[in-house]
Write a protein that binds this DNA or RNA. Structure first.
Lengths: 336, 336
DNA sequence: AGAAATGTGTAGAACGTTCTACGGCATCCC
DNA sequence: GGGATGCCGTAGAACGTTCTACACATTTCT
């Protein structure tokens, strides 16, 4: 009882056994008598012993999983986190989140830091890095990548089926009678492939083609301002679209503002749909039709795959989660 | 080169020196010649050595700071995180976030986990626990608490000056000519003291009294629905208020909806103000007058205090960050 | 010139676990 | 009754650092 922490040696002394025995009991390992079990657990309870994770790290497991977040502001991160922690709630794994920033460099620093802390596995959410860099990380620890289409042999992947999401929107609008449906996407100069907005745009194109309609994609950015600018340009055309499908809700909010300013009423003059189903989309005052990717399911799936991989699976798995369309007040039949 | 990791021993071998020498160079400790310095850093670069944080943990520092998040959905967490990481960006500290959930039990589990991983210090954001529990944590690691008024000797505290924030709103509304100003607050059954909403309500009362006005506080909850219900009740009164100050923006959004449904125009018939200045408050379509607590400053301050404490300060510090009022379109002179 | 001080490097014990060997003791089988 | 077989428990070496002692060499002081 010199200072602070209760160690395995303290427990062993108290119970009158060896540290190895205590270790066995703690880990639920083979070769422990009922009597030993009782003695040791009692000593543990009395002393309030908790294994020191950092010390464990030096020999195998740390029971720590790292989740690298790219953009902390991303509105459905909370859902994904909830999915992950929910799935892991009754296991002994602990989840720690690492704010990786949006730069490849800071993200690399974060993943390095996680590996240096010998985390048992990593979930990377929308990482901005090359496949080669991902491969290096995956060589050092089990990895599940969320939100990037493509995947690779070295790690597992969980994605929202963005092609399907885009199709849901187009089908819905076409079903309402729209034919001039424009899409606002995000302009990205990064070399990364398979980012969600690219796949959404491609899904939109496919769906339009399937309906025999001409596609119309405008690339601005996934910000309120980007949506506003894009919509202003689209609405100034002679043959203006009767519906705008923005690849992200935040941009859709900008579209709504542009409609306001142009004196167009929604959905009578213009239907608007977004993607992500962020919290405020459901506020009655906004009531934005949007595609919901179930973040909880995505997170739970990622957690499951990661644990499987940690426990030995080597074959790579790519899981695709189906989104659903949430129809609200901003979409309706076109006037006339 | 048997497997994976480059260790300090590998570097020592390569440079032809002892591991102790390498350790000195890595830590920038005293007693290293220029020649030694050069040899070792070269070997480190060649091998790509990074110190193993978990191994370090067993002897002193881990250079890891833990941030416990209570509610991941809280819209200004990202700002606080940015403030923390921004401040720490050029140090060797790494920040890891722990989703603690809203239950005292899960939060305790998370702080325990952080201590078990021997993190060098903890920042707790709006923790829901008793002062006694906080004291236990603070005994095991340096702690800074964010968002709880009151503080204690064992840890540092950073809070938004919620009394001032409430006063800013009341002063603004009174300046516009309002006299019947109601406040919507959050109903909490937890035994925790000094939670922001309580202090905001108290600040509102003080400010009203200072103006010689009668206060009018209604407790529902800080949700869109809570704001809606509260406003509906307030607006049904004979002597309905001309301004409603909601203690959180999310509730203010509900107030706006209630005004819509009651056929009242904002701000002519009803002024509305919120608190937190969440992202969408600035959207032109919402344009909500709100109190901005500079999350970045709060985060940066918390990080600074924590590092100071880790480096030896023992005297406790409580820092209060001044909020600012952002006047937008939802407040104006009463029609009367 | 000898003693003291300073500067530079190393040996080796910690830190708190896990886990491989192995030893002791019953039990079982022929 | 003696060897094989299980079961239970322990000793002690790892894991990758840090850090206190100390050894040795050089410089400074008197």
């Amino acid at each position: 009882m010199t200072s602070g922490r209760v160690t395995i040696a303290d427990v062993a002394r108290r119970a009158g056994v060896s540290t190895a025995a205590v270790s066995k009991v703690v880990r639920g390992a083979y070769g422990v008598s009922a009597e030993m079990q009782a003695k040791v657990t009692q000593a543990i309870d009395e002393l309030g012993y908790r294994p020191h994770a950092a010390a464990r790290a030096l020999r195998g497991r740390t029971y720590t999983l790292g989740v690298m977040l790219s953009d902390t502001r991303n509105p459905f991160f909370p859902d994904i986190i909830e999915g992950i922690t929910g799935r892991l709630g009754d296991t002994e794994y602990q989840v720690l989140l690492g704010p990786g920033g949006i730069e490849p460099k800071t993200q690399a620093r974060m993943t390095d830091a996680m590996i240096d802390r010998s985390m048992d596995g990593l979930i990377l959410i929308s990482p901005v890095m090359t496949d080669a860099e991902l491969a290096v990380i995956a060589a050092a620890a089990p990895v599940v990548v969320v939100g990037r289409h493509g995947g690779a042999a070295a790690y597992d992947a969980v994605v929202d089926d963005d092609v399907m999401g885009a199709r849901l929107v187009v089908d819905h609008l076409v079903g309402l009678g729209h034919t001039r449906i424009a899409h606002i996407t995000h302009l990205e100069r990064a070399r990364a492939q398979g980012l969600p907005h690219m796949v959404r745009a491609e899904g939109y194109r496919q769906a339009m083609r399937a309906h025999g309609l001409a596609d119309d994609v405008l690339a601005t950015s996934f910000t309120e301002e980007g949506g506003f600018e894009g919509a202003r340009e689209l609405l100034a055309r002679d043959d203006r679209p009767t519906a705008i499908f923005a690849g992200a809700d935040i941009a859709a909010l900008g579209v709504l503002r542009a409609a306001d300013e142009a004196g167009l009423s929604v959905p009578e003059d213009l239907s608007v749909a977004g993607y992500d189903n962020i919290g405020i989309a459901s506020l009655k005052r906004i009531s934005l039709t949007s595609v919901d990717q179930d973040g909880r399911v995505i997170g739970a799936t990622a957690a499951r795959l990661l644990v499987e991989r940690i426990e030995g699976r080597t074959r790579s798995v790519a899981s695709s989660v189906s989104p659903t369309l949430i129809v609200r007040g901003t979409t309706g039949p076109p006037r006339h």
